[in-house]
Design a protein around this nucleic acid. Structure first.
Length: 730
RNA sequence: GGGCGAUUAGCUCAGUUGGCUAGAGCAACCCGUUUACACCGGGUAGGUCGCAGGUUCGAGUCCUGCAUCGCCCACCA
């Protein structure tokens, strides 16, 4: 065999990777239909499918995405080589708020303009261009990682097919009474001018003065005196002896910020007697607990703060002032009136912030669209174990049931507890957003008439709801919208439920739970059999990477320096599911060295067996026999590890076997035999080395696809490595 | 306030169901340029496996308590 000159130089990942990826792509084997056609798998083969968690089109990929791509590609390549009918569906996510606010920011920075200066249509055009650009960058980066995705099936959460799925899903849920419109207290972001869901709210510890105020005969405490104008109910625990003389419903007159008011006593056992003075006034318009109390007792209330964060006329002389600035003035007035009894300066409380790049959350009451998670309905066509078609269920129950009954397994298992806890605390999901980029809600109005459908009404005069849907509504449909639903496609038939959902543990609630909700409801089946959660990639010092902190590492830079194979190995070895990792240049460098080791060991074996005729398996000597046997044990071990999601162990074992057993011991021992005179010994040694090399390359392929494929192509093989048979384990 | 995780060599971490004389990479030190590889080979040093109890023939691995760090959840006004 004439060896390529390439082997005379160290392994060059930059020269190899893009070229090899192109060959893979052109072969068509990323697409299971081609594999079927070419006999790599057949109609009866077991199916293995993954839908790629679609990256947000908000810019570029980060190392977290690299980790995701590495792990998923390992599973996909492994299963493809095992002869399964293997599909990995790519796509991207429009990420509504995140993308829009990113573009708004850019627009303001560059041109000092807001979206209103452009208008809905023109602004959306701008967002779409930005999204398209991000998309292109992201796809390029994804290919750089070696991801063997079936690009012929690429999807976008906002494309035509997915929009049809979204509208269909909305209509069905509306018709079942699970989607409703209602005035509820919601999380309002006065900065981005939209609501956000409970899960998008982030709590930030803040130290703020805590004011004790005189409220008639009571003393109440608050961190936000500027919201207190309309407070006309004072609430206390029914068992609180201090306030036993006051009866529920009793009215008293008292002096308040802007003069005398009539207050009403309310008794409610939500009150914590230990906290503060045990008495509090409520602001139902701008506080979720207060709103609950008001609903429970049928109390009336008024909006104090408008949607831009300014005080309304109820604030009297302070009307029109922004709440961010007005507090000192109000406190001053309260002090003048002798209503401030104490100020505690060491009080910390958790301020609510919009985690999607927005401002401080101001609870407001607003008419919004919600998904009711507690309402009973009859499930259609249930394929779920333990739930019959027509049985009465709630969305919450479905979500809990499929995990509890192990129809869906979460890896690592400890996240199941976290998941249950989330479900138990789950409230109705606010799905409407007052932003422009996203799926516009498929609801049309004409006077008091309402039309909810996939298509707009035929006749004129209808006006469409201007809100858009929470981005997680569309991503919740992802496992089946990508496979053609609501059509009854063969893809859906074949590949759903998917085998594994692999994603970061940080989006367990946002996404994983929502997918379970949507899929069990719409399809009566689970979206995936297993959930594999990976951890967060941290910087060398163990801190979260972020653009603002400037410690974010660009995956492309790592690939440029060390090669994609090295990056993949470094991210996988020794990192168990759900565990965070800090990634350093040193670790990646170590696997670059490993790449070179694989390269050189291959070169040695291939150059030393050139003269030998190894077509037939020769008689092996005892030592070689033992080596082959040992290898078989390793094959079993590695296969078992990968099947059971222990990629971190499989990768480490392969590394050690290849370097410290194969290269350091087996090859070294074979040297004198190869250069000796005994033909039998030569053949036995040569055959064994080649056999171990080939087997190792196959097993390394899912982890380090580029270099293994490249070496494979330099050997006399009739197939590409990516479609070779995985080593037997019998 | 509730929950989860981490704590193993100087650093970053493995150690799958209890059997380990506790491993790897990087860093350190010594030796080695005999034709796969200096992106190398051989070797040395380095650990009371956070602390205190307990279960067991046997515990880094299981149980209890504590400490420190990190994360998540939560309607303490």
């Amino acid at each position: 065999m004439a060896l390529d000159d390439k082997f005379l130089k160290p392994y060059d990942s930059k020269e190899t990777e893009d070229r090899v990826y192109k060959i893979w792509e052109e072969s068509g084997f990323f697409n299971p239909d081609i594999c079927l056609e070419k006999g790599i798998c057949n109609e009866k083969s077991e199916v293995f499918s993954i839908v790629l968690p679609p990256p947000n089109v908000t810019g570029v990929l980060h190392l977290g995405h690299s980790l995701m791509l590495a792990i998923e590609d390992i599973m996909i390549r492994f299963n493809r080589m095992r002869g399964k009918r293997t599909l990995w569906v790519p796509g991207t996510d429009h990420a509504a708020i995140a993308t829009q606010s990113r573009v708004e920011e850019d627009l303001y920075k560059k041109e000092k303009k807001t979206k209103h200066d452009l208008g809905r249509e023109e602004f959306l055009k701008l967002v779409e261009d930005f999204a398209q650009n991000s998309h292109d960058t992201i796809i390029g980066q994804t290919k750089k990682m070696g991801a063997s995705l079936d690009w012929s099936r690429e999807a976008y959460t906002l494309d035509e097919k997915r929009t049809l799925a979204v509208n269909t899903a909305f209509k069905r849920m509306y018709d079942d009474g699970l989607i409703y419109q209602g005035e509820r207290i919601i999380n309002w972001d006065p900065y981005l001018q939209t609501t956000v869901s409970d899960d998008e709210v982030e709590r930030v510890e803040k130290q703020t003065p805590f004011y004790y105020l005189k409220y008639g005969p009571f003393e109440i405490a608050t961190a936000r005196p500027e919201t207190k104008f309309g407070d006309k109910y004072v609430v206390m625990h029914p068992d609180d002896k201090r306030y036993a003389e006051y009866k529920h419903g009793q009215k008293i007159k008292l002096e308040w910020i802007n003069g005398e008011i009539e207050a009403t006593i309310v008794k409610d056992d939500i009150i914590d007697m230990e906290f503060g003075t045990g008495a509090m006034t409520i602001t139902p318009s701008h506080d979720a607990i207060d709103f609950d109390i008001a609903e429970r007792h049928n109390l009336d209330f008024e909006q104090i703060i408008d949607f831009k964060g300014k005080l309304l006329p109820i604030a009297g002389e302070f009307a029109g002032e922004h709440i961010k600035k007005v507090r000192p003035k109000i406190v001053e007035k309260l002090q003048e009136k002798g209503l401030v009894t104490k100020i505690d300066k060491n009080y910390t409380h958790a301020a609510a912030v919009n985690s999607r790049g927005g401002g401080t959350i101001e609870p407001q009451i607003l008419k919004q669209w919600f998904i009711n998670v507690n309402k009973e309905f009859k499930i259609r066509d249930s394929k779920l174990k333990g739930i019959k078609t027509g049985e009465k269920v709630t969305l919450k129950k479905l979500m809990r049931h499929v995990v509890e009954s192990s129809q869906i397994k979460i890896i690592p298992e400890r996240f199941e507890k976290v998941y249950y806890h989330w479900i138990d605390n789950l409230r109705d999901w606010n799905i409407s957003r007052q932003i422009w980029y996203g799926h516009q809600i498929p609801v049309w109005y004409k006077g008091s008439e309402i039309h909810v459908d996939v298509e707009p009404p035929k006749e004129g005069g209808w006006e469409r709801d201007s809100d858009t849907l929470d981005t997680w509504f569309s991503s919740g449909l992802w496992t089946f919208s990508t496979l053609g639903w609501p059509g009854k496609t063969s893809d859906l038939e074949t590949y759903h439920p998917t085998s594994v959902l692999e994603t970061g543990h940080d989006i367990l609630f946002f996404w994983v739970a929502r997918m379970i909700l949507m899929t069990t409801y719409h399809l009566g089946e689970i979206p995936f059999e297993n959930v594999y959660l990976h951890g967060t990639v941290l910087d060398e010092k163990g801190k979260k990477m972020s653009k603002s902190k400037g410690n974010a590492v660009d995956p492309l830079e790592m690939i440029e320096k060390f090669g994609a194979d090295a990056l993949r190995m470094a991210m996988v070895v020794g990192v168990g599911p759900g565990n965070d990792q800090s990634l350093s240049d040193n670790k990646v460098k170590a696997y670059k060295h490993f790449s070179n080791k694989v390269w050189n060991a291959s070169r040695f074996v291939l150059t030393n067996i050139e003269e030998l005729d190894l077509k037939e398996k020769p008689e092996l000597n005892k030592v070689d026999e033992a080596r082959v046997k040992e290898l078989r044990e390793i094959q079993k071990d590695i296969t078992d590890d990968i099947e059971n999601y222990r990629f971190y162990l499989a990768a480490e074992k392969l590394y050690h076997y290849f370097w410290h057993t194969f290269a350091d011991i087996i090859i070294e021992e074979a040297k004198p035999r190869l250069s000796g005179e005994d033909e039998g010994e030569k053949k036995s040694a040569g055959w064994t080395l080649l056999h171990i090399l080939k087997t190792s390359l196959k097993m390394l392929h899912p982890f380090m696809p580029f270099i293994t494929e490249e070496i494979w192509s330099l050997m006399e093989n009739d197939k590409m490595l990516m479609i070779e048979d995985w080593p037997q384990t019998k």
